[in-house]
């Protein structure tokens, strides 16, 4: 059985349908990648999995259990850690407090040693442990966001464009970390990327999303050779300027 299965998901922003019947499966232990242009619906797919948005139709199965319609905190406690687009660290908490919040619902006695473990993966955060997250650089915030998610001890991590806005050197550092976490901590990954080259390099299996539909899926090795991918994703400039719009989240006050 797959760790995560989406079947025929349809998700709306008000009257606008953003996801038009997406089905996909992520196998335990994989790094699965989700490619797509701006506005394809990648973020929406992740939000539908983590419960920040509810699908109008379709099912989300995690470890065989239906999780669509659950609140995101409940989904998180089941073992799905969402590392959102744009980092979204807690700006006025210290690095250490940010990490502690990742372990909020844990009752085991290993939180302190897990913080050390996370800081070993991200040595730059070690010296900043007592600083407010707002004062970290973009790359450091991305590392904090991943480290904070790691504190949940997740089975599955949803990573939304972790390479966004980072220098090439940092992009490969982040890629390296994702691969290591996948192998050493056995965290299954669902990685959303516009940096198709990086994603295809570390990914096992990939999906291509276009205007809310999966138009192609295959192993990453085969996707790399596919003509369409080479033309549209590997030849493409990585980052466009994007107008960020936010929809009022039904589950929050904002």
């Amino acid at each position: 059985m797959s760790l995560l299965t989406l079947s025929n998901i349809e998700t709306y922003y008000g009257p606008i349908m953003a996801i038009h019947g997406v089905s996909l499966s992520v196998e335990e232990g994989q790094i699965a990648i989700l490619l797509g242009a701006n506005g394809a619906g990648k973020t929406t797919v992740l939000k539908t999995i983590s419960g920040a948005m509810d699908p109008q139709k379709g099912k989300v199965l995690f470890e065989g259990q239906e999780i669509q319609g659950k609140d995101p905190d409940e989904v998180a406690r089941m073992g799905v850690a969402h590392v959102p687009e744009g980092r979204e660290v807690f700006p006025f908490l210290t690095v250490k407090e940010n990490l502690l919040m990742g372990a909020f619902s844990r009752r085991d006695g290993e939180v302190a040693s897990d913080i050390d473990m996370v800081l070993d993966y991200f040595p730059v955060l070690k010296e900043k442990a007592a600083q407010q997250a707002a004062f970290l650089s973009g790359g450091q915030q991305q590392m904090l966001a991943i480290g904070r998610a790691l504190m949940l001890r997740p089975r599955l991590m949803l990573l939304d464009e972790p390479s966004l806005g980072l220098s090439p050197r940092l992009v490969s550092e982040i890629a390296e970390i994702i691969k290591r976490l996948n192998e050493e901590q056995s965290v299954t990954m669902l990685l959303v990327e516009q940096n198709a080259r990086m994603a295809l390099d570390i990914g096992d299996y990939g999906f291509v999303l276009e205007v809310g539909r999966i138009v192609m899926e295959d192993t990453c090795d085969r996707l790399k050779d596919a003509e369409d991918i080479q033309e549209f994703y590997l030849g493409m400039k990585d980052e466009g300027v994007r107008g960020r719009r936010r929809w009022k989240q039904r589950k929050t006050w904002r």
Binding site: S50, G51, A76, P84, E88, V89, M101, S105, A149
Partner: peptide
């Protein structure tokens, strides 16, 4: 601290499993 986290970023608090 979780109250502070929630007021700084509700959605991120949800993602951390904090019962918002």
């Amino acid at each position: 601290i979780a109250m502070q986290a929630t007021s700084q970023n509700q959605l991120a608090a949800y993602y951390m499993g904090i019962p918002v």
